[in-house]
Amino acid sequence: MRYLRWRFRHHVNGREVTGEAPWLIVGLGNPGPQYAGNRHNVGAMVIDRMARDAGTSLRAHKAGALAASIRLAGQPVVIATPTSYMNESGGPVAGLMRFFKAPLERLIVVHDELDIEFATLRLKRSGGEGGHNGLKSISKSVGSKDYLRVRVGIGRPPGRMDPAAYVLKNFTATERAELEFLVPEAAEAAELLTVKPLNDVQNVVHAR
């Protein structure tokens, strides 16, 4: 299959420069150390892992995010986590897309998913948000649901626990041990989406 190569234009010292548009990989979570270990922050954990693997660190960006520019498989990629709360993720994502001239087709959102068993990854493009406020905010701000998602399963809450409370609790010790494998796998899935068609990556990831 022939991959689409998106192009962008910008000006440096008054001169137009063309180049390949970057991918934008965004991991969702809430800001601050009190939320860092929450189930709701697993998307941000994946971005932190990608930054570490790339030997870089995320820096504050005026769009309202922590971001870094890296290269994966020889192409430009921006990795980022919004510094807003989860339900306001859309503004920073839209701002990053404008700043880096990343098209919707190259937006990948990594997020927690209640309706998927813990430690399971599922990939898709478009579709509903399943009640996820971060996704709802992004869809509204970018004007479309047609972006790629890396859905990291956290499972349903036990008993009658409120899902809103469940996602804001830290992973258990047993779950944290599994995260040592899950987070790198999610990072790898996001990277694969930048070089292969969705169906091909689904065949690999969903078979695990």
Rank of each mutant, 00 (worst) to 15 (best):
R5P: 13
N38M: 09
R176V: 10
R156A: 05
V12G: 06
K124A: 03
R5I: 15
I108Q: 00
G29N: 03
R160E: 14
R125F: 04
V142R: 02
A119C: 09
R71V: 14
K196Y: 12
Q34T: 12
G155D: 01
R49W: 11
Q34W: 15
P82K: 06
L135H: 06
G90N: 09
A67V: 04
M97R: 12
V42W: 02
Y85F: 13
H61A: 04
L148A: 09
S137D: 03
K169L: 14
E191T: 11
Y3R: 15
V46T: 03
M45Y: 02
T194C: 04
V77N: 06
G127V: 09
A54S: 07
M50Y: 00
R98S: 11
R125Q: 10
G19Q: 07
R151I: 02
Q202C: 03
P82T: 04
V204S: 01
M161K: 12
R98W: 13
L58Y: 00
A173E: 14
I138M: 05
P82E: 01
H111Q: 05
A165G: 13
L123I: 03
S69V: 13
R59P: 01
G37V: 14
G37F: 14
G128W: 07
L168E: 07
G130C: 06
R98Q: 12
V109Q: 02
V201E: 00
R125K: 12
L4E: 13
K169I: 15
G155W: 08
F99E: 15
K140G: 09
P157W: 01
R208C: 00
I79N: 05
L168S: 09
A177V: 12
S89I: 05
N38S: 12
Q202G: 03
R176F: 09
W23D: 07
G159R: 07
H10A: 14
R176K: 14
R160P: 10
R39S: 11
A80T: 04
R151L: 02
